[in-house]
C-alpha cells in the first residue's frame, strides 16, 4: 500500500535536499509518494532532473512561503 512521506530538508546545505530525497527513495516501496520540503531554489531544477533520469514520477512542484514542496512517486 502506498503512503506519503514528508522529507523536511529545509535549511540544509549538507547533505542537501536531493541527497536526502535519494536516501529516502532507496528505503521507499514502489508506488510510495514522497514530498520533499526544500528552501534551496536549486531543488526546483535538480530534483526533476534526477527524477527524469532515473525514471521515477514527478507529481507536482510548488512554492509556498519560500518553501518548495516537490512531490514524487517511486516507480521502480
Amino acid at each position: 500500500m502506498s503512503q506519503t512521506k514528508i522529507i523536511d530538508a529545509r535549511d540544509t546545505f549538507c547533505p542537501g535536499p536531493l541527497m536526502e530525497l535519494i536516501s529516502y527513495m532507496k528505503r521507499a516501496n514502489v508506488g510510495d509518494e514522497l514530498e520533499l520540503l526544500s528552501t534551496d531554489k536549486g531543488s526546483v531544477n535538480d530534483v526533476p532532473e534526477w527524477i527524469a533520469k532515473v525514471g521515477h514520477e514527478l507529481i507536482s512542484s510548488e512554492q509556498v512561503d519560500n518553501v518548495w514542496h516537490i512531490k514524487v512517486r517511486k516507480t521502480k
Binding site: 536531493l18 535519494i22 532532473e49
Partner: peptide
Amino acid sequence: YPIGRIHTIE
C-alpha cells in the same frame, strides 16, 4: 556522484 554536481555542498 549521486546528484547533479560533483559535491552536495555547492
